[in-house]
Every structure is written in C-alpha cells, then in structure tokens.
Design a binder for these strands. Structure first.
Lengths: 155, 155
DNA sequence: TTAAGTGCAAAGGCTTTGCAGCATA
DNA sequence: TATGCTGCAAAGCCTTTGCACTTAA
C-alpha cells in the first residue's frame, strides 16, 4: 500500500507534526485495526519520547477529521483503522483472534432496507461477526469433535 | 413482557440470590440495552445495599450462561440486553441517542454468504448502524438544512 | 452445614486533562 | 512570532479483586 504522508497533509489546518505523521503511517501500515495501546507500543518503538496522551489525542483528532474509523472487535477496547475507499466489514475468529475483512452486497441492501422501512438516514454501518475460521474449525475437529461448532466462549 | 423470574431459575446450579433476581428483572424490564452503570443506578434504587461489584460479577455470569448479550452501541461502555428468541439489530441515532431495533432477512443472507465464501462458522452477528432517525432529520431540516444529512459528529 | 455470593474497599488499567516548554505555520 | 501541539504527571472512570461476612441449597 503506497502512501504520500510526507507531502500531502490531510489535517485540514491542524499542524502536521512528526508524531501525527508517525501515527498515521503506523495506522496505514497496520492495514487493519489497532487499539490505542498497541498503537502506542508500536509508535514508542520508533519514537521513545512519544507519550500515550499524544496517541489518544491524535486518535480523537483523526476520528473528528474522518481519517480513521473507530470500531469494536470483540474486545473491551476501541480499535482504529485508516478509512479506505471500499467499505468492508469484519469477521473475528474466537479461536485464533484473526480478523478477516469481507465485503458483501447484502450490507448495502440492508442499509437501503433500513432507509425505506424506518426512514433512518444511515451514516455509518458496522457489522461484526464472531465465530470460527476454517482453520480453527479443522484444528478443533481433529482435537475434539464438535468443539469448534459451539457458540460458547469464555473470554 | 411477562416473566417467571420468581419460579424458574435459569442459573444452571448457581445460587438464585435476591440480587441476581433483581438484576435480571431490571434487564427484562429494560426491554433493550443498559450499561453496567445504568443498571447499577436502577438496581440500587431498589436495593440500597447492592454494590457495583455485584452488578459487574452478575453481568459476567449472565454473559457466561448466555442469558444476556453484550454489545456496543456507539459508546465506550458495554451494553447488556436480555437474550430473546428473535434476532435483532440496532440503529443508533446520532441526533437524539435513540436506539431502534430492527430485523432484516439480509442479515441471515449475509451470514450464509460469509459461511459459503470464507468457510467461516458464524456464532454471533452484531450489526450496528449509526445515522439520523426520521424525527431528527425533520427537526434539523427546519433548523438548518443539510445538517442531518452529514456524517460528521463530534461525540 | 457448606459452598458460593455479597459488600466493602483498595487496586488496576485505560483515558483524559492541566500546565509549561516546544514546534509548526 | 503566535497558535497550537507535546510530554509529563496527576486525576478520573470504569472494572476487577481480596477478604470477611452472609446467604442459598
């Protein structure tokens, strides 16, 4: 994924600081979700002096500017993701924690249905599916049959 | 909504205490989402001695037993809802905060599609749509045109 | 009677905020 | 140069946990 973070500022008048550049760069490279804590971990590895406060402040700014999407992926914490052209949704595996992105025309149909039936003007759609990925299903099948097909989960 | 909380214990061997009965009763009466804080507020109005710790511990137990669904409704906190027979999803209005429940056949189709295309075994589907309800759209239309159609939101 | 739950209070973890110094525009 | 951002540290919240007492079974 290419990026032009050094030349083009999407900050709408807000100063283009090295911290914000670093954080946006990491968000791009993540190619998916990260939570604030993980983003701080990665960022501080490249800039020791960076503080958690800056991470939180920056994420809030990015959110306001519409640069990132905030979402929940089954954990308690918020996750953040660079906004991209294509809409996509997430599958989260309860077995291995893997996050799979997917698209489906049904999402769009669903939004249309909601608009028509409830007069609700949808500005943000977030679908979250939990379950077991193919690999975990097969792994569990060989260990203990049926386990992977249960909806029960501890954490 | 009728309930048989006094006679039937869904606690699977766990003691049926007055605190748990009260909390489940309130969850039923809520007929929708409540977060832990709000649940505590309501519960302590009826039992002054009840502690927040009990609310959290009970919610975790209910979750384990599959009595409630835990979900996110746009806020930082978790919301809880008594599990019901019918699957339903949520629309959250950015204007007035109202939560509208809805059902759609597209959700089921989407789950099927995911199963077929990714081999993903879905155990939980949670759809979260944000936007503006009909009333807020009309309210905004008379105050300042266009406002309700923007995706921008501060909090 | 006994295992389990509860209340209380303290601790833990994440996030926000005040303030002085510093960097971007 | 001036506005606004950053780091630091402290404060704020929500949630969890340890312990002694109480309660359901």
């Amino acid at each position: 994924m290419s990026r032009n973070l050094n030349n083009v500022s999407p900050m709408h008048g807000h100063p283009w600081t090295s911290q914000r550049r670093l954080l946006l760069e990491l968000l791009h490279d993540a190619e998916g979700y990260v939570d604030a804590k993980e983003l701080y971990r990665r960022a501080s590895a490249r800039d020791e002096s960076l503080s958690p406060a800056t991470v939180y402040r920056s994420l809030n700014l990015f959110k306001e500017l519409g640069l990132v999407d905030e979402m929940r992926l089954g954990k308690v914490r918020c996750c953040y993701e660079i906004k991209r052209a294509s809409e996509h949704q997430h599958l989260v595996c309860q077995g291995c924690g893997k996050v799979i992105e997917f698209q489906s025309p049904y999402v769009r149909k669903l939004i249309q249905a909601v608009r028509h039936e409830y007069g609700f003007n949808v500005t943000k759609a977030q679908l979250y599916l939990e379950g077991y990925c193919l690999e975990c299903q097969e792994k569990e099948k060989s260990d203990s049959p049926c386990a992977a097909t249960q909806g029960k989960h501890h954490e």
